[in-house]
Design a protein around this nucleic acid. Structure first.
Lengths: 313, 313
DNA sequence: TTGTACGCGTTATCAC
DNA sequence: GTGATAACGCGTACAA
């Protein structure tokens, strides 16, 4: 409401509002302004335990600025992504939050005209989009350093991936830690994986078919670690007596595992909050103040790590 | 597009669309129609493990009908609820999905004019709003029946609540099962709880201060069961050797507990799908076809239940 | 300081 | 079948 209205008229207006129960029509407003007050959040999997807390952060920040959060669930299906692209094209969303480094719009991805956007977790493929994540290298480094401090020297890395930048960064932290401790790299100790529980189980099977076993499994995320623990238990081994295991993310169930999982915590709510704040800033200023915000991940020590023991063969 | 346009003009129109990349402006459309294509989903806690899969169901169904899902997180705070009420009043949402049986709009709840709404899990307080949930009585009955079949006769019920209808219904199932087995009710075996992990721990402490222990703990939900298991383990007991435990919900981490939790599965994605379908039906027809949809919950047998053993005192 | 008129992009209506 | 026109409610610019 402008400043230059006289107090008398302002009073009358307010009274009229009270009497009629007037509320401004957001549709008309958006139409006139050519911009809505909705932010579209597109994630491949809403059910991902890593997602929900991020959403809380996103939502709180948006709401406190009068924005609403529209959610989109693509399941890595380009067809679904396209439907959300329609949302954007029809001006239903003023901004876009993207998860896991991909533009989910299939073959139209390259030509799509996007509103101001911010990525979460990883920089978005083909760049130009600022993002908020965690310092993966530093986080992974904390995990290796712990294992090395406990006396491990044969540490496997489970879940390397060329397509997920966060994963390859975590591997970089792993290698840096090994290097700092004077442990030479051993490629046989690095196994690929897509971050699923199954990929963790599979990695254990593969390693047991080789002649050289690690004493510790450093996993690219908690899901992988859970798979590794299942695989190890199935073979009758005890954790951490026989093998140590670390994860990354600090997913809700990490604390309920037996043994509870030592892992690296992502400050999820804070990531969501920062990502939304950055997007809203973009929306008003037009220019990104920062192109990359990396939060500090913390080591959470639980019970899945101990000093290495003699391994039975 | 109307039927009565000639093929020749239709062709020209489609060509023009292809050339200019026209997309209909949803704002103008909503303004003209006086109705948006957004559904507001309000939940007290987005991070609730019970919530995310429901959301998937809601979202899929909505999207396939051209609707978007707007999410609201109230944290049981009436103030936040009011902000979402604004969304509704400004015509930003055509319909409303409510969780856990309460209207989250504080003191304005009674006077609020609501759009077509559907409840999830429990009927919404003060009624008139159709809802989709699970047959809690039948579900609880499956759990007691299993315990009774294993030979238990002293079965505690943890998590009774007068405010949450779903919980009191689960208690009804519990009592019906006891009754059917000719086991008289014992009020000392029924403990209150709000469905949190802490309430489960507390219940264990309370029971151990009494003179008569159960051989099994039937919990109102998985969180409570997790708390009970923690409490029991802390006291050095083995599950299910010393005590059996059942939950309700089949939350994702239930399978990762040690022992894995025997529980009652809620078909979450299906609940979400049905709730949204019902709402969309309401939106077009105006009249609710059904006022209550109860889905069938399934018993998931895992490792937290066995026959009762002699209890050490 | 206040009032008024226009246009945002649709859809619905009505005359052609 | 087709084309023109009004109206949805708001923000803005300009006249009073």
């Amino acid at each position: 409401m402008p400043e230059k209205v006289a107090n008398s008229t302002r009073l009358k207006v307010n009274q009229a509002i009270a009497v009629t129960g007037y509320t401004t029509n957001a549709m008309a407003r958006s139409l006139r302004l050519g911009r809505s007050n909705m932010i579209l959040v597109v994630a491949p999997d809403i059910g991902d335990p890593n997602f929900s807390n991020i959403l809380i952060g996103l939502e709180n920040e948006a709401r406190s600025h009068g924005y609403g959060v529209l959610i989109g669930h693509t399941q890595n299906d380009a067809q679904r992504g396209l439907e959300y692209l329609k949302f954007l094209n029809s001006n239903q969303a003023a901004g876009l939050i993207l998860f896991t480094g991909i533009l989910p719009f299939g073959h139209q991805t390259m030509t799509a005209r996007l509103p101001p956007s911010v990525g979460v977790f990883e920089p978005v493929f083909n760049g130009g989009i600022p993002y908020v994540g965690v310092d993966d290298i530093a986080g992974a480094r904390k995990a290796v350093d712990l294992l090395i401090a406990e006396g491990h020297r044969k540490i496997a890395f489970i879940g390397d991936s060329r397509t997920r930048l966060a994963y390859s960064r975590r591997r970089m932290g792993y290698e840096a830690g090994l290097d700092a401790a004077g442990i030479g790299p051993d490629l046989r100790m690095v196994l690929e994986g897509d971050g699923t529980i199954e990929s963790g189980r599979l990695a254990v099977e593969q390693l047991f078919m080789r002649d050289r076993l690690p004493t510790a499994f450093m996993c690219v995320n908690d899901q992988t670690a859970i798979g590794v623990m299942i695989g190890l238990k199935t073979r009758g081994y005890d954790i951490p007596e026989d093998f140590s295991v670390t994860g990354f993310d600090d997913v809700p169930q990490a604390v309920f595992m037996t043994p509870s999982l030592t892992t690296i915590r992502q400050p999820r709510t804070a990531i969501g909050k920062h990502a939304m704040a950055l997007l809203l800033e973009l929306l008003s200023d037009g220019q990104p103040a920062e192109t990359e915000i990396l939060l500090r991940p913390d080591l959470v020590v639980r019970n899945s790590v101990s000093a290495p023991a003699r391994i039975r063969r």
